[in-house]
Nucleic acid binder design. Structure first.
Lengths: 221, 221
DNA sequence: CTCTCCAAAAATATCGATATTATTTGACAT
DNA sequence: ATGTCAAATAATATCGATATTTTTGGAGAG
């Protein structure tokens, strides 16, 4: 049957590959909010069978990027201003908790990872690499991961992804006002390395609130 | 093929039915933590095809009640004291946020639902009805639902379910120390109806902390 | 006696096809 | 014209079967 002769960049399983690709398409808006996601159409687009597509859509349902409608299939999750504001609210709440716990557990190895991820993000940002998104998320997650609270981390990751989506929808790409986010990131990093939880959370939350207001203003479309 | 001649309590779709039943079996410990969940075995147990079982397991993965292991199938999510403590921590954090928002939006219709759900729960408790679990959850969710924050509500619901599981595992059933939870519930209800957010959240969190300590002490098994 | 490697067995992941359910189309009556 | 109902169409949900991968069990070498 499918001989799996993937000569180049492959995926372990067809399901996982479909999941990754669909997720990317929804995050970037290639599959716009509310759009009906027909199995046949996606099966052709991803060049795979119906079962992996179905299962990928199921997985995306749990990420809240896809909605299942009773017995009428799937569709890309809709967006709304209130949804965006809820995401922002929860992010501020949960990431503050996580960041404080992370700093409370501070240790050398964690700080090293932090510095490294920050460096990678800066490098990717300067040369406008396409993996800036990944590097950016990796940095933000690194800030939180030392909390060693897996559930909390998972929620933060989910909310981060939901937020990415609004960035793309508002700005059409990751070029969201390249104002001074570099400086903001630097402030957060420095405060975290100083083990100054109050300062770090203040900077982090301001970082979110500011981009939140920017996106909110753009949301009259 | 399957003529769907469900003469009695049926389910809309085979997938949804399998999801519900598997979820119940995991919550009550009928499928113990860490147990391998083989498709064939479950297919026989639930008397359905492999596809619905697979999809139900995928859905349970997002509820964090089932883990998917690379290419080696599924297993019931493991339990641990640290996992339990994280659930408790997040519940206290998220439910406080939700309850305060709920009370801030207080309106007559909401208070009516609250009183009703509380009444149903009390009734189910007295006659030891098997649907006490459902009534109990319905009451707790009613406390939060007026926040009108769907994502937050979803997280609270998920965490509630994860917690149920530990109750069953520790006590072997919903008969978890019938000490004075009725009084505790009454206090929460009264404070909520008074729009006293501070009092309500204090009682709610104490309610969780107390059962948390009780379960934590039982966890040396 | 233990370890490694290969063959047999089991389980998963995936496909193609079918039955079921929802949606659309068009004819007919009001 | 408009609204309703039925047939046709399309899409989903599910099944049975196959290919792929993992696990098991045992034989032979050290």
């Amino acid at each position: 049957m499918d001989v799996m002769l993937d000569t180049e960049g492959k995926e372990k399983s067809a399901t996982h590959g479909a999941y990754r690709r669909l997720r990317g398409m929804i995050l970037t808006g290639e599959l716009p909010p509310g759009q009906k996601l027909k199995i046949e159409q996606l099966r052709g687009l991803l060049d795979t069978g119906a079962s992996p597509v179905r299962e990928a859509l199921s997985l995306l349902t749990s990420d809240m990027l896809v909605e299942r409608i009773d017995q009428r299939g799937f569709r890309a999750a809709p967006v709304s201003k209130s949804n965006f504001e809820e995401i922002l609210l929860l992010r501020c709440n949960l990431e503050e908790t996580a960041l404080r716990a992370s700093i409370a557990n501070a240790e050398g190895a964690w700080e090293d990872r932090l510095v490294l991820r920050h460096h990678h993000m800066k490098k990717a940002s300067q040369k406008g690499a396409p993996d800036f998104e990944d590097a950016h998320k990796a940095f933000h997650m690194a800030l939180l991961e030392n909390a060693k609270l897996p559930l909390l981390l998972r929620y933060c990751s989910q909310l981060y992804d939901l937020n990415i989506r609004y960035r793309y929808l508002a700005a059409g790409g990751p070029s969201y006002k390249k104002r001074d986010i570099a400086a903001e990131h630097q402030q957060i990093l420095d405060a975290a390395l100083d083990h100054d939880a109050d300062s770090a959370t203040r900077h982090l939350i301001n970082h979110y609130r500011r981009t939140g207001e920017y996106l909110s203003s753009q949301m009259e479309s």
